[in-house]
Simulated assay, not measured.
Amino acid sequence: MTDTLHRSERVPEAMAGQRLDQAASAIFSDFSRERLKAWIKQGALTLDGGQARPKDKVYGGEHLELHAELEEDNRFEPQDIALNILFEDDEVLVIDKPAGLVVHPAAGNPDGTLLNALLHHCPELASVPRAGIVHRLDKDTTGLMVVAKTLTTQASLVEQMQARTVAREYDAVVTGVMTSGGTVDAPIGRHPKDRKRQAVTATGKPAVTHYRVVERFRSHTHVRCRLETGRTHQIRVHLAYRRFPLVGDSVYGGRLKLPPAANEGLKELLRTFPRQALHARKLAFVHPTSGREMSFRAELPDDLLMLLDYLRDDHESMR
């Protein structure tokens, strides 16, 4: 089974000097760079109406035209994995992702992922790139994700993501007591020494996170974050950069800090909390066909509710 794909975009001036395949992978971010390179070589992705090479430089303002036959991707097996579906119609699917569920297969997780579950729930997603996944959550981050069920819907959602009109809000519990909210505007890219991590770096991509205080405890803070951009590990990196790492973050959390004179129950919970304390609580976007504003909320999962209860009890006991 094949589906016809037709998309056109302008190269932003900010991409001047980049390779064509590099620029294309940023513009058409729902496709892999390798697939885009193949389309460039085949002439299915043209530059100002003509065929180009993946290594050709762009100068900004050029017209990219993508016209290709998209075949079903049979690399991944459908798997009967339970999904918590909050909304579904012919165009979109909104889910509340649990902790421990990887979004997309990779070297360390070849199956058992959200993508495998989506292919089982909706087999026609085999003809949509990445089974309709347009944004990701880390394996151990819980909460809301939207999935596109058609190519047209996927293009619309990707465009909304790039235009920063998709509202995404997260709850987090961090180590340290914040005096007020704020904004972190700091570029994020690969860590210069550890390729598996991200870091604030001058050569990174622009990244903006707004945060505000929900509740303060003796040594921790419950914060609410709003994303302008969607870089890998953005909230985790930005809050650690501000010296307020997420509770349970084994990558960016640093040395464990326990509240002085805390009871053994809280100490044990903080020592063993199995994941970064991060939850995607709110998601809002414009429905690609109806044009209606869609807004969803996901309640905090039990493990974060328990963590907040322990921190609240500890705070009250010392007053």
Rank of each mutant, 00 (worst) to 15 (best):
residue 3 D to P: 00
residue 3 D to H: 12
residue 3 D to W: 08
residue 4 T to N: 08
residue 5 L to A: 06
residue 7 R to Y: 07
residue 9 E to T: 04
residue 18 Q to M: 15
residue 18 Q to S: 09
residue 21 D to L: 03
residue 21 D to S: 12
residue 22 Q to K: 15
residue 25 S to H: 04
residue 27 I to W: 04
residue 28 F to A: 01
residue 29 S to E: 04
residue 30 D to V: 03
residue 30 D to H: 15
residue 31 F to V: 03
residue 33 R to C: 02
residue 33 R to N: 04
residue 34 E to S: 15
residue 47 L to F: 06
residue 50 G to M: 10
residue 50 G to D: 00
residue 53 R to L: 01
residue 57 K to A: 14
residue 58 V to T: 01
residue 69 E to T: 09
residue 71 E to S: 15
residue 73 D to C: 10
residue 73 D to S: 08
residue 75 R to L: 14
residue 79 Q to L: 12
residue 80 D to V: 01
residue 83 L to V: 04
residue 83 L to Q: 07
residue 87 F to A: 14
residue 89 D to G: 10
residue 89 D to F: 04
residue 92 V to P: 02
residue 97 K to P: 00
residue 98 P to D: 05
residue 104 H to T: 03
residue 106 A to M: 10
residue 106 A to Q: 08
residue 108 G to P: 01
residue 109 N to Y: 11
residue 111 D to A: 14
residue 111 D to Y: 13
residue 113 T to M: 11
residue 115 L to Q: 10
residue 115 L to F: 08
residue 118 L to D: 01
residue 119 L to K: 07
residue 120 H to I: 01
residue 126 A to V: 12
residue 127 S to I: 12
residue 129 P to Q: 09
residue 129 P to L: 04
residue 137 L to Y: 02
residue 145 M to C: 08
residue 147 V to L: 09
residue 149 K to R: 13
residue 150 T to F: 05
residue 152 T to P: 00
residue 152 T to K: 15
residue 152 T to E: 14
residue 153 T to D: 07
residue 166 V to R: 04
residue 167 A to V: 12
residue 169 E to N: 13
residue 170 Y to P: 07
residue 174 V to M: 08
residue 180 S to G: 09
residue 182 G to Y: 09
residue 182 G to V: 03
residue 183 T to C: 07
residue 183 T to R: 15
residue 185 D to L: 09
residue 186 A to L: 05
residue 189 G to I: 04
residue 189 G to M: 08
residue 198 Q to D: 02
residue 201 T to S: 14
residue 202 A to W: 00
residue 206 P to I: 03
residue 206 P to M: 06
residue 213 V to A: 08
residue 214 V to D: 08
residue 215 E to H: 12
residue 216 R to Y: 01
residue 218 R to K: 13
residue 219 S to K: 14
residue 220 H to E: 06
residue 221 T to A: 08
residue 226 R to W: 00
residue 227 L to R: 03
residue 228 E to I: 14
residue 235 I to L: 11
residue 236 R to H: 06
residue 239 L to C: 06
residue 240 A to E: 05
residue 241 Y to F: 11
residue 251 V to N: 06
residue 251 V to A: 12
residue 253 G to D: 04
residue 255 R to I: 07
residue 261 A to P: 00
residue 262 A to E: 04
residue 269 L to Y: 07
residue 269 L to S: 10
residue 275 R to T: 04
residue 276 Q to I: 10
residue 278 L to H: 03
residue 282 K to M: 08
residue 283 L to G: 12
residue 286 V to H: 05
residue 287 H to S: 11
residue 289 T to H: 12
residue 292 R to E: 08
residue 294 M to G: 12
residue 298 A to E: 01
residue 299 E to W: 04
residue 305 L to V: 13
residue 309 D to S: 15
residue 309 D to H: 14
residue 309 D to K: 15
residue 313 D to H: 13
residue 317 S to R: 14
